[in-house]
Nucleic acid binder design. Structure first.
Length: 257
DNA sequence: ATGGCGGTGGGGCACCGA
């Protein structure tokens, strides 16, 4: 079973790329972020045509999340029930049944803007509530995936040397990431040996991708039960070389199930 | 230091992202 996540930075612009990538990668589940599209405009038929069910929640211009799956999705949760939020940043659903049941939580975590901003306060509160939700979900679902754009680079090795920002790498944000791991979640990428300077996002400006001036901020976190079944966790850089690429590229886990 | 680039809405250019 392959599960992936991709911040597409506008699904309208990237739909063809997503379809192509699904056909090529053959993942079973794909979480999407930054649809930047109203709910009623979601291209459900385009995904159905290539064999994917979908659940989603959109909004105009900003945010918006979806889960695509080859098998039907059940028990859909839109937004964190523990956090009143107008911004559409979280969607969860069951994939599979019985022994194969996996709970998938797809997230587009707030950016935070700068450490002294109201948006940073929102980011911290949002993560506090996410931690609480994941804690609850783990009690209900031993097989849990938390994936998406976390907007946190967990360690220095997840940050290119010239990065000059403070947000995405601050101790407060990294503490939030560690807080999720403290619940028992594992950063699947670090279960395996990886190339140095592996990133999932590159700045559009200054030839960021060409210079590999990136950050690893898109993650696949697995509960213990799934970490034990994880056989690979990779970043697929290929779509970043497309014409009009998203600034993020997909991340994928393989589970022996 | 600032802005670089790209998407959106709306029909300029400001806002936002990371």
């Amino acid at each position: 079973m392959k599960i992936a996540s991709w911040n597409v930075n506008s699904l309208s612009v990237r739909l063809e790329q997503v379809i192509d990538w699904l056909n090529q990668s053959q993942v079973d589940v794909l979480c999407l972020q930054e649809l930047k599209m109203e709910t009623h405009k979601f291209p459900e038929e385009a995904f159905k045509a290539i064999g994917y069910h979908a659940v989603w929640s959109g909004q105009k211009t900003y945010n918006g999340v979806a889960i695509l799956s080859r098998t039907p999705l059940a028990n859909v949760q839109i937004n964190n029930p523990l956090y009143d939020d107008e911004q559409q940043r979280l969607i969860a659903a069951d994939v599979g049944t019985g022994e194969q049941l996996v709970r998938v939580i797809g997230v587009y975590c707030p950016n935070g803007s700068s450490l002294d901003s109201d948006k940073f306060i929102y980011k911290m509160a949002w993560f506090d509530a996410l931690n609480q939700y994941v804690r609850e979900q783990l009690q209900q679902y031993p097989a849990l995936v938390l994936t998406g754009d976390f907007n946190i680079a967990p360690e220095d090795r997840d940050v290119h040397a010239k990065y000059s920002g403070d947000v995405l790498i601050s101790p407060a944000e990294r503490k939030q990431f560690q807080g999720l791991l403290a619940l028992g979640m594992k950063d699947s990428f670090r279960l395996f040996e990886q190339a140095e300077k592996s990133f999932s996002w590159w700045d559009y400006r200054q030839f960021g991708f060409k210079r590999n001036a990136g950050l690893r901020i898109d993650h696949l976190l697995l509960s213990d039960a799934l970490a034990n079944k994880c056989t690979a966790s990779v970043i697929d850089k290929a779509p970043r070389a497309n014409e009009r690429p998203s600034d993020h590229t997909p991340v994928i886990v393989e589970l022996a199930m």
